[in-house]
């Protein structure tokens, strides 16, 4: 317990130094990634988890190409199978080390959703504590399955929380289904229709996401999140 408190304080001190050094407004982008066993299955000679790992490195380089997006975008990563854990805390791209994910285990989505909502809320509080303005955080769920081992009540509760967070404009939630995903189940999360990844076009998807992050700062006359067409990586 003592160690945890020490960690929290150390992290807070580090944050305050980072924010003093770079007071740009932040846009938190949380990737919630499925690492269940099926993500390791060969699909016509390609393995989703490998393409996803490649895409994460590519995402970093795309953001790095835009000076302001590099200062403003904070990437966080949650990985989930039957368990969910924070693989990478929110950080700007200079401190983002793309993880190498491995696939194993079953699928519980609700735990990952709950963790994602908590993580975003905590980050917003950190911004406020440090006098940093911020844009609406984005949560990006990528999944190739369905709530296989979720209890119905956990699944419903997590979805209700996401929907409430979306309705209260606490975040913008996006779902991407990889080949094999139950798109009907994924569609039922949040208020936005789930996008189906074309083949394993993770690179194209991350390039699009990076470009969307670059334009997130434009003023919005409505609460809607305006996006360019995901043509090229999603089945539209």
């Amino acid at each position: 317990m003592v160690e945890q408190n020490d960690l929290a304080q150390a992290s807070s001190l580090e944050d305050s130094v980072i924010f003093a050094d770079n007071p740009e407004p932040r846009c938190a982008c949380l990737l919630v990634l499925d690492v269940s066993g099926s993500m390791g299955f060969d699909r016509n000679g390609e393995v989703p988890i490998r393409q996803l790992n490649d895409g994460l490195g590519f995402f970093k380089s795309c953001i790095e190409d835009d000076t302001l997006a590099s200062l403003r975008t904070e990437i966080g990563v949650i990985a989930f199978n039957h368990e969910a854990s924070v693989i990478h805390d929110f950080s700007t791209v200079d401190r983002f080390n793309p993880p190498t994910l491995t696939a194993s285990g079953g699928t519980i989505i609700s735990g990952a959703l709950e963790l994602a909502l908590d993580m975003v809320e905590q980050r917003k509080q950190t911004y406020r504590d440090n006098g940093i303005t911020y844009y609406r955080p984005w949560v990006w769920l990528i999944c190739d399955g369905y709530p296989e081992h979720d209890t119905p009540s956990d699944w419903e509760r997590a979805k209700a929380r996401v929907k409430e967070a979306e309705n209260d404009r606490q975040l913008a939630f996006f779902t991407v289904g990889v080949e094999g995903a139950d798109m009907t189940e994924l569609d039922s999360i949040g208020g936005r229709q789930a996008l189906k990844l074309q083949g394993l076009n993770f690179r194209e998807m991350f390039q699009w996401l990076s470009s969307s992050m670059s334009s997130v700062s434009q003023s919005q006359p409505t609460d809607a999140v305006s996006l360019s067409s995901p043509e090229g990586w999603a089945e539209v």
């Binding site: 407004p25 303005t133 911020y134 844009y135 609406r136 404009r169 700062s217 434009q218 003023s219 006359p221």
Partner: peptide, 11 residues
Amino acid sequence: EYANQTTFITS
């Protein structure tokens, strides 16, 4: 709450 959110004359 967000940095790109404001009131407009058209709001």
